[in-house]
Write a protein that binds this DNA or RNA. Structure first.
Lengths: 242, 242
DNA sequence: GAGTCTAACGGCACTCAGTGCCACTAGCAA
DNA sequence: TTGCTAGTGGCACTGAGTGCCGTTAGACTC
């Protein structure tokens, strides 16, 4: 063995699955801190790896790209959402199921407030990271859309695909709006309450249009019933037009 | 001058603004063809530049990144949308204005069907290009949201920000759905008709939810009016809960 | 037509992300 | 002790993106 081949003994953290998770977290944590301290572009992968006590090559065995390290548990969220949809009660309203499922994202962000806040400032500052975040949002928006599409199609909706895409986008936007507002408040706001309000707005917009509305009104009139019916019918006669 | 410094005469296309546009198009066109022929990753910027008859360094003076070349006129679309919002009739319904403005994107895509189709297959195939497209969509979705937010705020909507974000997402999703469906048909479908249908769905979902619903119903009962009112009131008593 | 100036261009060298390859070794099994 | 496996680090390589600078086409002036 030559002198140049000599090296420090390898700790080999990733031998066990728990160790792999631990190293992933260590890399992610080190990266976030370095990004915040020195800026994203100014931080090299070498520095991240060194801060976590591993080699540069090992970093790329845990994360495909440099920016992936900021969204470490995103895959986890997506698979968890898919599982939630699989075991969802089919009798519940699809939009409602989608809303309550997407709030898994809020739970994940709330579970690690410190990292969430740092990532928030980074995604607001660095354009490429903002794009990356948008791409991750799009990924679970697709999961929402797929679920809604199958459910809408079951209900005999002939525009299921369109309605699913639009509703999924609306739900994701509402979720993001709540999330960003909460992060801007530094995690102080009542996230559950604002989420409920936001999803109520979405549900109102899309549930109502799905099934026929059931409307109830009270009127007082001396006119004979057939005339009342005719007048009421005239009010909605343009509804068939598309 | 040494032999190594000798070079072919420079054509200098970009001396005039028209020439710059022409070279941009040439680079974009060459890139798309190479991407389709040899794959995105397998195509180097050197090859694109060479195919357009310029040096590699010039490529990066016309496009910031390699993937930007696929979305060459995106900035143009965004600024045109912003201008459209500025001269929009303030008496028109905001959602309707947003819908008709976003269809500028459809016009741009329809204007160059060939490139649009090639880009479509690329964005479906290459993950990084799909992410890039999602990011571009997000950019004009923000323009929509900003317009809707100011208009909703004018109307005294205290949840203007949320409603604007959700409506903008829905409009963008509807637009994309129409666009993708049209591209999958190879440009054969009637894009205007399907756009009208899609935007009708969005408008229905968001215009109606803005004002209070006006409901009319006919009922026949022998019960005294106060009891009827009390029973009807009980039906909606959970509506205040948030 | 000759001189001048500006800006587009090409070349070169550099950094860094990401990848393939291989040698090394900690931990485990026989 | 002797393999075997898998995590790891080093190394070299490709390619994107950037800063710098010399060159020169084309426009403008006189």
């Amino acid at each position: 063995m030559t002198e140049s081949q000599r090296r420090a003994p390898v700790t080999r953290v990733g031998a066990t699955p728990a160790g792999r998770r631990q190293l992933r977290r260590a890399l992610s944590s080190a990266a976030v801190d370095l990004f915040v301290a020195n800026g994203y572009e100014a931080t090299t992968v070498d520095e991240i790896a060194a801060a976590a006590g591993v080699g540069r090559r090992t970093f790329f065995r845990y994360f495909d790209t440099k920016d992936d390290v900021l969204f470490a548990n995103h895959d986890e969220i997506v698979t968890e959402m898919e599982q939630a949809f699989e075991r969802a009660d089919p009798s519940r309203d699809p939009v409602e199921v989608a809303c309550s499922t997407v709030s898994l994202v809020l739970d994940y962000y709330a579970a690690d407030l410190d990292v969430s806040l740092k990532r928030f400032t980074l995604t607001r500052t660095v354009a490429s990271l903002r794009d990356k975040e948008v791409a991750t949002v799009d990924r679970y928006q697709r999961v929402l859309a797929r679920y809604l599409q199958t459910r809408f199609a079951e209900q005999g909706d002939d525009t299921a695909s369109l309605r699913a895409a639009v509703a999924a986008a609306a739900i994701a936007a509402a979720n993001n709006h709540v999330l960003r507002r909460w992060l801007r408040s530094g995690g102080k706001d009542d996230i559950a309450a604002s989420a409920a309000r936001a999803f109520a707005l979405v549900g109102e917009a899309f549930r109502a249009a799905n099934a026929e509305q059931t409307v109830v009104a009270v009127l007082s009139t001396a006119r004979p019933l057939p005339e009342v019916m005719a007048r009421l019918g005239a009010v909605f006669q343009d509804e068939g037009a598309d």
